[in-house]
């Protein structure tokens, strides 16, 4: 049986609008987590993530 495998290529080209929707959702989720861990000013969040903030060089204090 002859098979032609197409590797590392999407089965069908994905429309830009679909990629844009996914990218915006994923990007917003990433930004939301980043802001929560790195930038939220609440004392509890600050203290819990304190050493990480210093390590990632987010402005802290």
């Amino acid at each position: 049986m002859n098979e032609v495998k197409v590797l590392k290529q999407d089965a069908k080209p994905v429309a830009l609008s679909q990629r844009l929707t996914a990218a915006v959702f994923g990007g917003l989720l990433g930004a939301f987590i980043l802001l929560g861990v790195g930038f939220a000013n609440a004392d509890l969040v600050h203290n819990a993530a304190h050493d990480s903030r210093h390590a990632i060089s987010f402005p802290c204090h």
Binding site: R19, G26, G27, A31, I33, L34, V37, A48, S52
Partner: peptide, 20 residues
């Protein structure tokens, strides 16, 4: 925990870049 969340946040941003 905080490092994992930060790295996952960066990973999501990177994956969003790949998708674009």
């Amino acid at each position: 925990g905080a490092n994992l969340l930060t790295a996952i946040a960066f990973g999501l941003l990177l994956a969003a870049g790949f998708t674009l």
